[in-house]
């Protein structure tokens, strides 16, 4: 795909309410490359929470409200692997047999996870302006398996000359978030995130970076609960900071 003139930005409900800086950073990264970002004001949620809880009618109603926010054929960029995966892989299933099925399939086909868009479409070149730092990358399961874009975040980070990526054990294993899983099976979720936190703490990283705010809410929350001072950050914010000379 050539560089488009405009894209839709689907900020996701989690980023909208809890992590707007991650959304703004993603939008800024895209605009910096000369692509105009449209942020449909009526957007909300992809429908994933209800879909993964078995409430498909409710998920469909919410997904449809989003579909109506993206009427034109611009690419849809989503700063989250799991929400991008919901649109790309589950909207066609969710809308099957509905009057707007073809629109849903078309939307799915032009949906990109943010790092995927930055690498595959914009061929983003980065110049690291930040101080030397060590990070650990937690790739969400949806980005890794459903979307198959785990290497995009790695290749973006690899362009940053002053950033050292620290390895951690059981890197590909789920952090235990799983949306409503963390509420329905809180103790398994707690055990999983504890193991994930221990692995990240042992990595020697200064910051944990991910392309998914769901994982970061889980991991960051658990680190805070255990009173560890290891910060977490969405990859878009991290990339923007490193390349614009800003620091927190």
């Amino acid at each position: 795909m050539n560089q488009p003139e405009r894209v839709y930005f689907f900020g996701t409900c989690l980023i909208d309410l809890l992590y707007p800086k991650a959304g703004l950073a993603g939008m800024a990264l895209i605009e910096r490359e000369g692509v105009k970002v449209i942020y449909p004001a009526n957007q909300g949620c992809c429908g994933q929470p209800a879909f993964n809880s078995g409430y498909r009618q409710e998920a469909l109603a919410v997904a449809r409200a989003q579909l109506n926010c993206f009427p034109k054929e611009y690419p849809i960029v989503v700063p989250s692997g799991s929400c991008a995966g919901m649109v790309k892989h589950h909207w066609p299933e969710l809308f099957a047999g509905e009057p707007d099925e073809s629109q849903a399939i078309a939307a799915a086909q032009r949906t990109y996870e943010l790092t995927e868009f930055l690498v595959d479409v914009l061929a983003l070149q980065l110049n690291d302006l930040g101080q030397p730092t060590k990070i650990a990358i937690h790739t969400s399961c949806s980005a890794r398996r459903e979307m198959g874009v785990a290497d995009r975040i790695d290749s973006l980070i690899a362009q940053l000359s002053n950033v050292e990526v620290m390895d951690h054990s059981h890197k590909t294993e789920c952090c235990g978030f799983g949306g409503t899983f963390s509420v329905k099976q809180p103790d398994i979720s707690g055990a999983m995130v504890e193991a994930k936190c221990n692995a990240l703490l042992a990595s020697g990283a200064d910051t944990v970076i991910s392309q998914d705010c769901g994982c970061l809410m889980n991991i960051g929350g658990a680190l805070e609960h255990q009173q560890h001072a290891l910060p977490t950050q969405h990859v878009a914010e991290f990339l923007l900071q490193r390349t614009s000379g800003e620091s927190e």
């Binding site: 930005f9 900020g11 980023i15 909208d16 309410l17 809890l18 992590y19 707007p20 800086k21 959304g23 703004l24 939008m27 942020y39 004001a41 957007q43 963390s182 509420v183 329905k184 099976q185 809180p186 103790d187 979720s189 707690g190 995130v193 504890e194 809410m217 889980n218 929350g221 658990a222 805070e224 609960h225």
Partner: peptide, 21 residues
């Protein structure tokens, strides 16, 4: 169950929708 292992996250002062506008 969530709160047993993590705090309830705090909403941002302004949503992305507001900031984008």
């Amino acid at each position: 169950g969530w709160r047993r292992y993590r705090p309830i996250p705090t909403p941002a002062p302004r949503s992305l929708g507001e900031l984008a506008r």
